[in-house]
Design a protein around this nucleic acid. Sequence first.
DNA 1: CCTTGACCTTGACGCCGCGTCAACATCTAC
DNA 2: GTAGATGTTGACGCGGCGTCAAGGTCAAGG
Lengths: 246, 246
Amino acid sequence: MEWAIQDVARASGTTSRALRHYGAVGLLAPSRVGSNGYRYYDQAALVRLQRILLLRELGLGLASIGRVIDGQQDAAAALRTHLRLLEAEWERLARQIESVRTTLRKTERGEQLMAAEAFDGFDHTQYKDEVIERWGQDAYDRSARWWESQSGAEKAAHQQRHEDIATDWGAANRSGAPVDGEVAQGIAARHVDWLSESVPPSKGYVANIGDMYVADPRFGNNYDQHEPGTAAYVRDALKVYAERSL
Amino acid sequence: MEWAIQDVARASGTTSRALRHYGAVGLLAPSRVGSNGYRYYDQAALVRLQRILLLRELGLGLASIGRVIDGQQDAAAALRTHLRLLEAEWERLARQIESVRTTLRKTERGEQLMAAEAFDGFDHTQYKDEVIERWGQDAYDRSARWWESQSGAEKAAHQQRHEDIATDWGAANRSGAPVDGEVAQGIAARHVDWLSESVPPSKGYVANIGDMYVADPRFGNNYDQHEPGTAAYVRDALKVYAERSL
DNA sequence: CCTTGACCTTGACGCCGCGTCAACATCTAC
DNA sequence: GTAGATGTTGACGCGGCGTCAAGGTCAAGG
């Protein structure tokens, strides 16, 4: 007993195009191909198709399905792997939905949160892992809570202050002012003051954050863009400031 | 102040490839292009980029982002539409995850649910609308509940019984046995008995279901594949049986 | 001046699972 | 014979870039 492609498609709830596709990728070959090129499927092919469609409904990719069906991979193992992927995606979606809801609420309240919050290289979510690794979970949590509590305008102001400080760092470096001189130490004081808006800065924190500016170009560029080598200059000036004044 | 593409990429947490892509699709043009073809971005471009990335993090497509940013579409409206999509997808994923978990449990218990539950052309979900239209909502609900309550093995057995009956219908038709004769009516009795597994068959139901076998090839093929014209044969035999015995 | 290495360009394919024409051959029924 | 349903292969499209490929440009150092 055999069926034409359209019969199979209707019986299985898929399409003839999909069946041809499965043939093309070597997932399901017709049991017979007529001299006219027509594809015919027998009972065995239907069973195989059914297994394919079952796994596909679960969201597996055609490649995995092929491996499972041909016995090259354990079905349970494939499903477990797949399940983890699905769950991760599901959680990602949940977070995204929350973000959209929040953003929607804010825009409806008329907030212009998409305005001019220029990049500051200190995005409190983007570098989450690094921040936690270096200063611990609480520091991150406090910082994140603080950041979340700010309005768009407050965030923008905060970043503007930093932008000004970075510009001054660049100018100081360009002018050749010594890192332990009055100019540099004055900027360092403002820098620490700026830092204290989000996190109460300890001596060790201030002394070491400069290393990160130098080591990590994602942070350092904020300074080096004004004048090359400024990140290192900032690092040294902050170390001096931490020793002297904290 | 302007920045080279790589600087912008690092500062914004994206890639130069993406920036070129945004340029190519008209989403974000560089503020200046050098005579050497190099792209440079100024503050305004950065602000625009930031809005792009914000919306992209929320999962919006580049096309929508373009419309929103260029003020051709209300941001709130776009976000609401998008939110509905996300929520639908989220629920779909949740259902899929449940399916995978169920399937995984079964395969781990050793059940061969991917085995030979061949298509029967009577899939209780596939033809939902038709079934409801012909026999009403309750009939469908009852049938669906019954079907759902069956295990894989029970479903397979149910379908195997039908497969046997269909084979016999084909043989009876081929042999030329009269539809009101002993052979055909015997098969009709088994057929009705089989039907009663899922739905208590009324006289009218039995008398008319044969019409559907003939009218709808998706159903009729199950019989005609054994011997052409068997669907009509079954229809006639069932009509006689309904009159005489129900 | 030359090299090295980092960075820039355009162009094009790949991914994933088919949907959707297009252009043409074949089967079925009247 | 002819219409209409159904079959074939071939190729593009989708979304958002990643990832070569092949080559031009620039700053720094010898």
